[in-house]
Write a protein that binds this DNA or RNA. Structure first.
Lengths: 226, 226
DNA sequence: GGCGCGGGTTGATTCAGATCAACGTTGTGC
DNA sequence: GCACAACGTTGATCTGAATCAACCCGCGCC
């Protein structure tokens, strides 16, 4: 693990509150793995062997249907800890992980993590907060799927990206993955972008800009639903 | 709080691992409230003032859209602790709570809960597990919404109710609420039931029975998706 | 018993989004 | 610089589920 990785760890919500020695205890038998875009970290149904922390790159959690189509459940970025619940409960992963952009990933053996967890009160407290935050993101996604149309979901996502008050945004994912995350097909995403032009959303490629954030918030009921 | 309530608390995953004195500390300034069906415990957007534990009855967590239609996010039953994340993080509730069947609810002041949480390692550990379990339920619901059709969602729900291996099931909710939980309208739920007859699901009113669980599992990709 | 009412079902129609297919566009490797 | 291959867009069509409306049924109540 590089020095910059330690710095990154200290800046994540989960590890920020931990002492240097606690982080040492947690990571002494951990290791870093580099994975190219397209790689699959683990498959849904696998028994968890590691807790993963993304040091660089981007990955997506995906669910698979019987017919083989993948639905993106959530994206993760630098500093994110993922699938903690499977590790804590020692139950099979409920989804697969696909690398979207070349990634550096810190892997902490699951058994070791659980042992430290059982002894370390600060880690427990940090994990409670981390899980709580994530829980809220999932609730928001479910509300999104149940209460909004496709263009509204896109609008809300763009507002989230922009920090909620518009301006210009860089899409961090390819559009087809974004489509999955938003619960629609790439074609529908394309049309959703087209529709949002009428609401002041313009841009090409990865770059998108929001002319009138207040109006877009209203369009997708940003404040009412989330 | 009645003696039977203490017994119930001890039987929940969150409190099972706690000592009697820890439970005392947590509940000494808590109180019990009785609420009739139809009551609303709190509204989405409210600041959390209590942690809720359902001692009897049934409640639903619901999201509201601007147009006023409610989507059921999740049901809770006797023994369930809900909206812990909002309390832990001291952020506004992301949903509302509606009482479905007359309920007895234990209410622990949020501030007090956070204070105890900060000191009690066992409570922290229990809450990590509780949140992890719930996190997995939410992931399953998102996969459900993204990967399954309406009849498949119903089939998977029925299988869950039956413990996964068929037989006969008692629907715990009115159908219109069940429809919301499954992300469809009551009409669609009705048609979904009609379609499932072809897959060996029969019944009237609250009572439903599954003739061939193996077949139904296959129909909804029970094992592949969840 | 009859009446009213809320919840559930059934049918007809509409609509959002998926699917299928063709066509751009971007970027990448030789 | 060109060719090929992804990726993305656009258009036509299809379909699952929503909507709108009528009807049914079980249940409480006077």
């Amino acid at each position: 693990m590089r020095a910059e990785d330690r710095t990154l760890l200290k800046s994540t919500p989960l590890f920020a509150a931990l002492s240097a020695s606690a982080i040492d205890r947690l990571t002494y038998n951990a290791f870093v793995q580099n994975l190219p875009a397209g790689a699959v970290l683990f498959q849904q149904g696998d028994q968890p062997e590691f807790l993963y922390i993304l040091l660089a790159g981007r990955v997506a959690l995906t669910g698979r249907s019987t017919e083989g189509d993948e639905a993106v459940i959530e994206f993760f970025r630098r500093g994110d800890v993922f699938i903690a619940p499977a590790v804590v409960l020692d139950l099979p992963y409920l989804m697969s992980t696909r690398v979207l952009q070349d990634a550096r990933i810190l892997m902490i053996p699951a058994e070791h993590f659980r042992e430290v967890l059982a002894r370390d009160a600060a880690l427990n407290a940090a994990l409670v907060k981390e899980l709580s935050r994530h829980w809220r993101l999932l609730i928001r996604q479910i509300k999104d799927l149940k209460l909004r149309t496709a263009p509204q979901r896109l609008a809300a996502y763009l507002l989230d990206l922009s920090g909620g008050n518009g301006g210009s945004v860089e899409l961090p994912e390819e559009r087809r993955f974004l489509a999955g995350r938003l619960g629609m097909t790439p074609e529908s995403l394309s049309r959703a972008f087209a529709q949002l032009q009428a609401e002041g959303v313009t841009g090409r490629g990865r770059h998108v800009s929001i002319a009138d954030a207040a109006h877009l918030r209203k369009f997708c009921a940003f404040d009412e639903i989330l």
